[in-house]
Structure formats: structure tokens, C-alpha cells
Amino acid sequence: MTAPRIACIGMAALDRTYRMPRLPPAPGKYIASGYSDVGGGMAATASVAVARLGGDALWVGRTGDDPAGEWLRAGLAARGVRHLPELVAPGGITPNSAVLVDPEGERILAVFPGAGLVEQPRFALDGVAAVMADPRWADGAAHAFTLARAMGIPRVLDGEVGAGQILHRLAPMADHILFSERGLREFTGIDDPAAALAAVAARFDAVLAVTLGAAGSLWWRDGDAHPLPAPVVQAVDTTGCGDVFHGAYALAIAEGASVDHAARFATAAAALKAEAGSGWDAAPGRAAVEALLARGW
């Protein structure tokens, strides 16, 4: 069977990652115990997860023609992810992040979203079986969702925190809206995740969920929020776990899985990513995810 092509629209970032004995409690100077440059960004990480899990991954996002952009594009290509060269901006500054990670895998991020990048989306989605988009390039996500709706293919929104009204613009265009806890709180103004999902369900006819980190996720069905626990793992770095979750979920849906199975598949993939460490190479392969699903939790 031909692997389904998943288009992941949004951000790639060079994550400059610092290992810390503990996260800083206050402003000051702190000594890191380790350092590495790793690939990051929500949509780019999701695309690597798709490729690692056996999908045909297409990342649709913006970089500059600077060294960071070259590093990211080469890294994606080496991991089996294709990208669109017309979205490389001459003179642009590629998104990058500073990531502080403690021994339990918790982190603090400072994200620079880039500058001088391509603004107008003019790409096509030939042969794509599902679209996953983050809110970091709103025009690109909206363009992709419009194309996907006309093609009759699934449209998965990574409902992470977005600037201004971006989530409110994109949510009506998606048929699978998977929020982060902070994104859902920002979207609704409601602290309780179950109550917040109920508020969203009153407005949108879509698959709705919120990820809750080590606690797993909540899924809205039959008029109520249903918990899906996550496997208990020893987390090394939780950066990118939500991105792996979204990529794995989009792939499973494109393969014809039910929402329940896609949710468990994505949960297993995210847990294995947390356990494996930092960067794109920590995204799990298909065999590891299937083995965890077979064992159960």
C-alpha cells in the first residue's frame, strides 16, 4: 500500500537546547550542563514524526536563506521529509529558539518566529491525503485548509497558543481541532479543560481534544469529555511531544483509522518521544509505537 502523503504547514525552528540542573527560578546567570542544536518547530517536527512512522511527509513552511535555514532544510531532507523551495526567503531570518531543559524533561522556551519570510501562500497540495497545520503561519494554514476542504481530505489544527485571533480564524476551517491546554484556555478563557471543550463543542462540529502532558488528553464525544491516559514513562525532554502527537494523529486518520485508534496511536508516539530525548531523531519509529499499543497501558 502506498504511504499517504501528509502536508504539515507551519513552523520549523533551530532549537538551541541547554541542559540545566534545574530550571531558573529567577533572573540571573546559570551554568548549563550540556548543549546541542536540534531541529524543532511544530509543523516540521510533526512532519518528521510522519516520516518516521512510515508516512510520505511534506513540510510546507518558511525559512530564510541563512545558515539556520540551510541547516533545517538539510536536516529535514536527511530524515525523509520534502519541502517547498519557493518558500525560502532571500535575506530572511529563520525561526529559532532557546530551550532550557531540566533532568525531568520540563522546559522553558524563548522563540523567535523569524523575520523577512515569505508572506503570501501560493502552494498546491497535489496528492496529499491529510493536512496538519500549526498557527505560526496563519495565512499558510488558512490556504492549506481551504485547499484541503475542496479536496475532501482531513484538516487537523494544532491548537497551540497563537497570536491575537489566529486560532479563532483557523478553528472554523478544521474538522479535527486538537488543542494544547494553554491553547484551549486562550481560545475559551476557561481554566477547566472539560468545561472549555464543552464551550468549543457548542460552536464547532469537529473532532475536539485537548492534550494534557503526562496526564494524557481529553476527547469530546457523545456530549462529554472522555480522558485518554498517557503511558507512564521517564521523560527526558517533553519539547516536541505535542508536535509528534499531531503528526502521528494526522497520519493515522489519513490511513483510515478511527478517531479512538488515532488518538491512542498519537498518545503512544508522544510518550515515546518524551522518553527518547531532544530533537527530531527522538521521534519514534512505527514498530516501537505498535509495540507499545500492543502492550497497552
Rank of each mutant, 00 (worst) to 15 (best):
F245L: 14
A257M: 14
G256Q: 09
L228G: 00
P227H: 03
A214P: 09
W220I: 13
A202M: 07
D281K: 01
E275C: 04
L228F: 10
A262N: 05
E255I: 02
D260L: 05
V233L: 04
A196K: 01
W219K: 00
A201C: 03
Y249E: 01
A268R: 05
A201D: 11
V210K: 02
L218R: 03
G240F: 04
L228Q: 12
L197S: 03
A250D: 12
A196D: 07
L218S: 09
I253N: 06
E275L: 15
D281I: 07
D224N: 13
R221N: 15
A270L: 09
A215F: 08
D260E: 15
G247K: 08
W280R: 02
A276G: 11
A206N: 06
D224Q: 13
A274C: 12
S258I: 02
H246G: 03
V233G: 00
A263N: 14
V232T: 15
A195P: 07
S217H: 02
A248H: 04
D237T: 12
A209C: 06
L251W: 09
G240V: 01
L218E: 03
A215N: 12
G247I: 12
I253T: 03
I190W: 10
D243K: 08
A199N: 08
R264P: 06
T211E: 09
A214W: 01
V236F: 06
R203S: 14
L218M: 10
L218C: 07
A270Y: 09
Q234V: 13
